[in-house]
Design a protein around this nucleic acid. Structure first.
Lengths: 173, 173
DNA sequence: CGGGAATGGTTGTCGCGACAAGTTTGCTGT
DNA sequence: ACAGCAAACTTGTCGCGACAACCATTCCCG
């Protein structure tokens, strides 16, 4: 294959994106682990459940909404279950699906963890950008996700807050 | 603290960024692991060395350039050394520093791995964006990194290709 | 209604990364 | 000149995530 190297503008953008990719997850994870004893992914699982009517989701659906593979989610749910934050309850009408339910303790946990996490996101992402840049980032994200998730398997995930009015539930989405 | 929740535009941008954060590393890693038997981070270490005159860097400097902590780099260098791709050579004038040298095998490895990796970056990032979006992404990256790396410890990393003409070395930067 | 195929989850193993010591070398002050 | 501290790495331990293999259930279809 003829290899098209990156020219300067491309390189400049890519280097920055790679740095953000390397640094941001660590920052988010550290804050949550320190203040709430949760992984960013664990938080996302709990938060997603907290935003769902009935606080319940099937494993597959939950894995889509949290950008995770099924094995990964299964392990995490096992751990969260051990801590009493979620429960597995197999649904009767389809016996191969597993429903995950956010317990009251889990709800309380995410309620306590949310402010600090949202503040971190605000400080490290939102407040760093202008309103215009936020829109640009949204468009760029859409473009990238078209390539990263061409089948649109997880498309429902990141379009769920398009249109419609203001949010009401806690967590961050 | 009064918790400022995310409004819709902020939420939309954040959800997309989070999805990219979750998906992109896996894609890059999978391609490199499959085609070259390298982690994205291992590749970055080798590539960084390959772009350096003398193919040698101190551990600390290398860790900065690859957005990694020193322990992490140390472990990875140990592994790469075991595979004969780099060598540790303690420099005589300052005996607490360790220099890392890219071996010929390592050079060959990165030379073989580069095209596939660059192609992946092209397909999943560069080609997905317009030239204007690329510039926007650069600016956004700068803004975010100001918060993620306020001390500017790693600032030299992502400004090293600003200004000046075209690149000549392989790898991707 | 019986035998694949496909769907939905779980479990096991392995390797990497984070964090927290520990170690050696160089610097600094008095 | 020596005490103490900082810099530069290394090492050890632990937990999470990727991947593959596996099991159960349901669908499909002649």
């Amino acid at each position: 294959m003829d290899t098209p190297w990156l020219d300067r503008p491309q390189l400049r953008a890519w280097i920055r994106l790679r740095a953000v990719l390397a640094l941001l997850p660590g920052v988010l994870d550290a804050q949550l682990r320190r203040d709430a004893g949760l992984t960013e992914f664990e938080y996302q699982v709990l938060a997603t459940l907290s935003e769902t009517p009935g606080r319940t989701l099937r494993m597959t659906e939950l894995s889509r909404l949290s950008n995770a593979t099924l094995p990964r989610l299964s392990h995490v749910v096992t751990r969260l279950q051990g801590r009493g934050l979620v429960e597995r309850c197999s649904c009767p009408e389809n016996r191969r699906t597993t429903n995950v339910l956010l317990t009251d303790d889990g709800w309380e946990k995410v309620r306590q963890a949310a402010p600090g996490h949202v503040a971190t996101v605000h400080h490290h992402v939102i407040d760093a950008l202008t309103g215009e840049q936020l829109e640009q980032l949204t468009a760029i994200g859409d473009a990238l996700l078209t390539r990263l998730d061409p089948s649109g398997t997880m498309a429902a995930t990141y379009t769920r807050y398009d249109g419609a009015p203001e949010p009401q539930a806690p967590a961050d989405g």
